[in-house]
Amino acid sequence: MSPINLAIVGVGKIVRDQHLPSIAANPDFKLIATASRHGTVDGIESFTAIEDMLKAVPAIDAVSLCMPPQYRYEAAHKALSAGKHVFLEKPPGATLSEVADLEDLAKSKGVSLFASWHSRYAPAVEAAKSFLGSTKINSVHVIWKEDVRHWHPNQEWIWQAGGLGVFDPGINALSIVTHILPKAIFLTGATLEFPENRDAPIAADLHFKNADDLPIHAEFDWRQTGKQSWDIVAETDAGQMVLADGGAKLTINGELKSSEPEQEYPSLYRRFAEIVKAGTSDVDLAPLRHVADAFMLGRRKFVEAFHD
Rank of each mutant, 00 (worst) to 15 (best):
S2M: 09
I4M: 03
I8D: 11
G10F: 05
I14L: 10
P27M: 02
P27A: 13
D28E: 15
F29D: 10
K30S: 15
A33V: 10
G39V: 07
T48H: 01
V57I: 09
A59E: 13
A59Q: 14
D61I: 08
D61R: 15
A62L: 09
V63M: 11
V63F: 12
C66K: 12
M67E: 13
M67W: 12
P69V: 06
P69H: 05
Y73L: 03
A76L: 13
A79V: 02
K84D: 09
H85V: 08
V86L: 00
F87S: 05
E89N: 08
G93F: 00
A94L: 07
L96Q: 10
S97G: 14
E98R: 09
L105G: 12
S108W: 03
K109A: 15
G110D: 04
G110I: 09
V111F: 14
S116W: 01
S116Y: 01
S119F: 12
S119L: 12
A122Q: 10
V125R: 01
E126C: 08
K129E: 10
G133I: 06
G133K: 05
K136Q: 13
I137Y: 13
I137S: 02
V140W: 11
V142Y: 10
I143F: 14
I143Q: 13
D147V: 08
V148I: 14
P153K: 06
N154Q: 04
L164F: 15
G165T: 03
F167E: 01
D168G: 02
P169Y: 06
I171K: 13
L174F: 02
S175Q: 06
I180D: 09
P182T: 01
P182H: 00
A184R: 07
F186N: 04
E196H: 14
A203P: 11
A204S: 12
D205N: 13
F208G: 13
D213T: 06
L214M: 11
P215Y: 05
P215I: 02
P215W: 04
Q224A: 09
D231T: 05
T236L: 08
T236Q: 00
D237R: 08
A238G: 07
A238N: 08
G247E: 00
K249L: 12
K257N: 04
S259I: 10
P261R: 07
E262N: 10
Q263A: 02
E264I: 08
E274T: 04
A278T: 02
G279Q: 00
T280Q: 11
S281L: 04
D282T: 04
D284T: 02
L285N: 14
L285P: 08
A286S: 14
P287E: 05
H290M: 06
H290Y: 03
D293T: 02
F295R: 01
L297M: 12
L297T: 13
K301N: 11
A305Y: 07
